[in-house]
Design a protein around this nucleic acid. Sequence first.
DNA 1: GATTCGAGTCGAATCGATTCGATACTATCG
DNA 2: CGATAGTATCGAATCGATTCGACTCGAATC
Lengths: 363, 363
Amino acid sequence: MVRGQADFASRPTIRDVAERAGVAPSTASLVFSGRGPVADATAQRVRAAASELGYAGPDPRAASLRSGRAGAVGVLVEGRLLQAFRDPYAVIVLDGLAQELDAIPTGMLLVAQPFDEPERAMEVVTGLAIDAFVFSMCGPAETPVVDHLATRGIPMLGTGAPSDDRVHQVLIDEAGAQGEIVHHLRDLGHRRIGHVTMPMRPVTPGGKLRPADLERAEYVDSRERARGFLATAGRRSPMVEAATADVEGGIAAARVLLDRSADTRPTAVAAQSDLLAAGVIQVAGELGLRVPDDLSVTGFDGVSLPWLATPLTTIDQHGEQKGRALGRLVARLIGGDGGGEVENVTIPTDLRVGGTTGPPPRP
Amino acid sequence: MVRGQADFASRPTIRDVAERAGVAPSTASLVFSGRGPVADATAQRVRAAASELGYAGPDPRAASLRSGRAGAVGVLVEGRLLQAFRDPYAVIVLDGLAQELDAIPTGMLLVAQPFDEPERAMEVVTGLAIDAFVFSMCGPAETPVVDHLATRGIPMLGTGAPSDDRVHQVLIDEAGAQGEIVHHLRDLGHRRIGHVTMPMRPVTPGGKLRPADLERAEYVDSRERARGFLATAGRRSPMVEAATADVEGGIAAARVLLDRSADTRPTAVAAQSDLLAAGVIQVAGELGLRVPDDLSVTGFDGVSLPWLATPLTTIDQHGEQKGRALGRLVARLIGGDGGGEVENVTIPTDLRVGGTTGPPPRP
DNA sequence: GATTCGAGTCGAATCGATTCGATACTATCG
DNA sequence: CGATAGTATCGAATCGATTCGACTCGAATC
């Protein structure tokens, strides 16, 4: 077997560098980490020795063993990346998180959790050196990952899920916000309002949803928004669950919701996300319904969808802020300075009235 | 200062578990890693001891120090996440990569490299325990990260950039593919063909581009596609560089390119990405030009943009395959079995004729 | 002149596993 | 029955740093 050059001349260690510079390894360590006081002259000798030897700096593996810091936080991505990142809201939260982590500085370690076999995520997580873990996209209420990380003493952050005392949360008032936007529709005069929900569990066929079905929902955010909807629109209002949280899911759900005669068809549809709302708008077009003249449509999230002709009436969740809040919490929990006293954070939301809502059509 | 419980009772180690199970630590290690032969009875005792003690499994930090494996690969993301992931092509490559890495199993560690201060990436990279590094999105031809990682002996993978012998590449024939699609336009009869290029450097104002400007381009893919364009369309064909590689960038560039009288205006525009092409199509609409009757438009990448009314004529780069190829290379390089003999891979591309190209308008 | 202080440096202990060669024991085979 | 092979286990060495308390020495303080 041919072995790489690297095996012949093994890489220099901090000990080699220290020796060459005529100092103790501990002093060399001080130079590289920038902690502790070191005379300028000494520091320069150490750095010179390092570059002469081709020393790339302390090995992160060894450093992290001793110091405890890994320089990375885990981020759970449910389902395929392709799917998850198609949602601009997920991306913007991640973006906010990344910005704050950059200041620590810390990288983001993406961990995929397939919808159909969530245990797979464990195999990766158990082997990962991380300082904290973030469930930035609201996933199932429970996952084995939480138990494992808790045992390892790794701080966890979430945005509603997993629901567990050991997970610090950055929340919004899901039910209240959904209620607010439905209220806006009622103020406009709508009385027949339909709801398109995000999936209620990892793998779902979607379809009509009754209030009782919410009891068995696994996704907290979908469930709470639906409850907020029912509370404001009335418990008999029609709800359809999308099979996937994307435009296609919205299209399929809207077809179910709008497939009835004009006198019983909803005059407004409140979707649980902007992407779903885009699907509803597309179906409205197919059915010859003008938005907002014949049908009002609302979204949720407040992401920019530049390809939509009309700006959506929606709830702005301030995703970047949410991500930043998560990042700041990570920083505090990692910092370790009395991180025990971290409280949950609630981010305010704002109703943003766009051009997709108006008074209901005259009968 | 309040300290967490964890500090009082420190976490059990594999030694504690071994002791409790009445075996040597080395044997316990064998149980957890699944290497080496262990009697069933012994393995069960060890596992029982572990769960009694609340042992979460070997500490990844210690394991990685000794074994050398970190269980993660770094992935460079240039600019902000929000921007980078808005490009479906970048995401689909990442998705392919993630799928292959999942099999190893290995996580993806996102490292941000701000456009304006690329050195920032170094601070994160130097502290990260990773097994390989992937430049999956074609970035600048040079970056300090390469030198550092080479010194550490960490294998690197790229898709054209950075151009360095130490970086293994998964390539496409950029110039050839761009030439092919321009050839398609010429076959249709077009003689005045314009080009909208991706940015040629991290921070650029964009604008008109002369052939000589290509010499100073920092992005290899943009440059090579432009060369392929010039070779097929003719060296005097107009080119405009987009300031950003998104729809907005395409819009601004298209305005510059199409702002002239009908008899000198290009009858076709070849854009260097599907996103840019979408921008061109939008500007065509603003100018009252029908696609493809008045203006043919081509893209590059072959991503699905469901919000486009007409499927784009484009070059399918097979992004998922590219990502998978990167992932397989990572697996081989990490596997270590004579990884020295890894050769660069070239992925074939396919011209996909959609509805955005047709014969030029009669004068 | 004795004492205090802080900057600068060092040595030894430690972080928590994995790996490798040695060893004991049990089947299998000719 | 002795040699061989394979299974199961162990002990010691090692991975490469960081940390902490101790020590030295010159300057400042009383």
